[in-house]
Design a protein around this nucleic acid. Structure first.
Lengths: 199, 199, 199, 199
DNA sequence: GATGAATGAGGTTTCATTCAT
DNA sequence: CATGAATGAAACCTCATTCAT
């Protein structure tokens, strides 16, 4: 059989990771097989194991990459500048990243329950993100921009609003307009949903 | 091995479903085997297949049960009565049901990607629930209780806030006080999070 | 569950045998299950084992019945009477019996290889039948009615001609006219097929 | 367990087919397991499934091979040359092929009733062979070499004579002298069995 | 005698991983 | 480094048989 073009180890690793991301996104962890990944990468079985110790390991690496992408757009908040605008930007960045094809499904569903170690990684990821939001909310509260309340729960609410919309769009294979979502989220954050005063 | 006391088919079915719910919740669909279920139920392999055609089938049935439990507490809104109170009650009902051990993980993560048919069932479930919420929001909007906006997105935001909190509590194996969550959700719904006017 | 009408043991046995003959004929030994038989008989699982020790045993009994039917029409040859007519009658009797629905398949195919004991029974059956034919041929030879030759092989040829036609009719689910077959067989027996002298 | 020396896929496939032919012939389709085949081949379970999708598939392939072997010796009849000699040769070729160890049992018994698809393949095989014989007889009849009669039935008679002898030899695990059989068949074909005129 | 729930050995198939070439 | 044939543990499922009621 013809032998694949030799390639720098770094590149071959990247190639495999990329193939794996596609495959895992399309089929999920359990329904994807090493066979799918190597076919996508055009590489032999043994080659795969020259670069990754196991399917679990490459999945972890794929996930880590996704997480990095997801967080990449999130800049620390500059207290001096306009807060709401910055919030909009953060949400937009996250939403855009999460809307990459099937990233949502990968992250929100398939990543759960692969194994204990994977769950721990996921926990850490969410914990980090959530605690950053929580801190931001705390700061905002101190500045009088954020109302009082349980900031941990509030942070999860924010995350949940984003995740659910992205997840549902993925599940229904439905396009999602980031601007519309950002608008709605913003409205939600600034005024809630109910007009209780109006009663 | 000693033979299990014969049991009415209805009871045995229920027992198997119950065992399966525990097992699937603990290990997820893919990491659970029929072996785990029958060990949990204290029953032989063949007995399992006397009641369910396959692992997939019993998983579907478990999931259907969970969904029923989840929806059971949701009463239709009485427009005459106090709306906010009713909203509180609905949220509380859902949260309580979702906090049943491991229900969250089952529903929010393990159910995704089992197979095409399963995904369809999940889509239907969420679609039904979301459209109910959407309708309720539409009615509220007509009554002047709910602000204007994209009610589909808003409905998903609401669902997401609940799901994320329940899911995180499950993932972190952390207790979740339904009242605290309901309070927070209620605050969110009535006033959002940011005091933009206050700037 | 309602209990089947009590029945004399003899009748119940007959009922089960009859159901089993139908089922085995339709599906063969390996593709038929005890479940099929008891459903056909309208009887509970346990009842089956009150009358037969195993699936193998009832299959043997069914086969024995078929063999009896098959041999029933074969009368000993009366040397005083017209031999060819008697041969016709014998062939006709066998063909008619074998044409009972699916008997052919049961006897010629499914019966082989069930297990060692079954093969032995089959061997005995054929051995008995064939040696009768062989003896008859030997007698005929002594009387000058049958040509010389290896009468054992000749007997098998005769049997094979009948079996193959019956078997093919069964395999093709094609009707088979016993008279046409008897005519052809008779022509074969009296004159062969080739007109060598005619060359 | 020590690892089998890697082998070219073509060879390994052939080896597995050969092992399967032995096993199926000895035990039949239903009583043979993949376990038997791989033990015979000295290969691991997974290896088997690298080459054949299922037990059914390899059985089909074995059967197809047997059929090819069986037909291999059958040359088209040359009308110019001596017909009876050619007929002798054809019969001898078929008999020799069928006498390969256990081929008879495989083809005449085990192949029946495996499943609908298998039955269809078998039907096709016999149908093809029989129609060739039938055509040959028709030609012979036109040439005045073959007597009148129902050539379809006659063809089956011929086939049946061969099959039965081969089958009985296999069932009784008795040697069969091809020449003696050919002689007997030839005598049968040229002069039948009965001396009716002699009466 | 009849019932049918329960059994579990045994069969088929999958797929992550190994290792000789 | 790359290759791909080989591995075998582990999963799913069937069905003849048993036995408490």
């Amino acid at each position: 059989m013809s032998r694949a073009t030799p390639m720098s180890p770094v590149d071959r690793r990247a190639q495999l990771l990329s193939a794996a991301r596609v495959v895992f996104a399309e089929r999920g962890f359990h329904n994807a097989g090493v066979a799918h990944i190597i076919r996508e990468a055009g590489v032999a079985r043994g080659t795969f194991y020259n670069y990754f110790d196991s399917k679990r390991v490459i999945f972890n690496d794929v996930l880590a990459g996704v997480m990095v992408d997801l967080v990449a757009g999130v800049k620390p908040i500059d207290v001096q500048a306009d807060i709401p605008t910055q919030a909009r930007e953060i949400v937009r960045a996250i939403v855009s990243a999460a809307l990459q094809p099937h990233v949502a499904r990968l992250l929100f569903a398939e990543a759960v329950g692969v194994d204990a170690e994977g769950d721990a990684a996921l926990r850490d990821f969410y914990a980090t993100g959530l605690s950053r939001i929580e801190v931001a909310l705390g700061v905002g509260n101190a500045l009088g921009i954020v109302r009082d309340g349980d900031m941990r729960l509030a942070a999860r609410c924010l995350l949940g609003m984003v995740k659910e919309n992205v997840f549902m769009a993925a599940l229904l294979e439905e396009p999602l307009d980031p601007d519309a979502l950002v608008d709605e989220l913003y409205a939600f954050m600034t005024g809630g949903l109910l007009r209780v005063g109006a009663r």
